[in-house]
């Protein structure tokens, strides 16, 4: 039973206010959002910060929902589970997700994220307008290809990401977005 205490200690040490691990659906997305919103309301969080955190959570969660079925054909089902966490510190919120992805998607994802991280505020705005205008409608998965751009714009910070190899077919994709609680730089 020691793992319970260990897990508790990790959550406290890392200031995690919410952790969800498992299957992701729209219903679960709504429940997680409602919990996080209640938490921020109880803490009387500033409405601008609250909106930004909500916004980034939605994009992050819906990304996982949209892409969670992509590797079903690959072996063990637990590998399809994803994790979502929110951390809260004095000066910032941290929204973190982790989900398995097929290795052949890594280059595409890395390319998108690196491009986004290379842009400043105005560059991101132009990139957003370009994608929404010229994107060929929604993808098969219902994504507009705008999620990461929007997360970067709303947070005003670089997106942090990592790909941890799992096996020959799958890697674990981690994504971390920071939302400052102090005035965001313009």
């Amino acid at each position: 039973m020691k793992y319970i205490y260990e897990l508790h200690k990790v959550m406290v040490a890392r200031n995690l206010i919410l952790v969800y691990e498992g299957e992701f659906t729209q219903e679960i997305t709504k429940s997680v959002l409602a919990m996080a919103e209640r938490n921020m309301d109880t803490m009387k969080e500033d409405s601008t910060v609250k909106r930004k955190v909500f916004n980034i959570m939605v994009e992050c969660l819906q990304n996982i929902v949209k892409h969670s079925d992509e590797i079903n054909s690959h072996s063990v089902s637990e590998l399809n589970n994803a994790i979502f966490m929110i951390g809260k510190q004095d000066d910032k919120y941290i929204v973190v997700s982790g989900n398995p992805i097929a290795n052949d998607k890594i280059d595409m994802l890395r390319g998108k994220l690196e491009k986004i991280n290379s842009l400043d505020k105005d560059g991101l705005k132009e990139h957003y307008k370009e994608v929404i205008k010229n994107g060929k409608g929604l993808s098969e998965k219902g994504g507009a290809g705008l999620g990461f751009i929007d997360m970067a714009r709303k947070s005003g910070q670089k997106l942090q990401f990592d790909f941890e190899p799992v096996n020959e077919e799958i890697s674990f994709f981690s994504l971390k977005t920071v939302i400052l609680r102090t005035n965001t730089p313009d």
């Binding site: 819906q62 219902g142 751009i149």
Partner: peptide, 12 residues
């Protein structure tokens, strides 16, 4: 009050 990025495409 809020819209996600998939909705923004449809708003356009």
């Amino acid at each position: 009050e809020y819209f996600n990025t998939a909705s923004s495409k449809l708003i356009l």
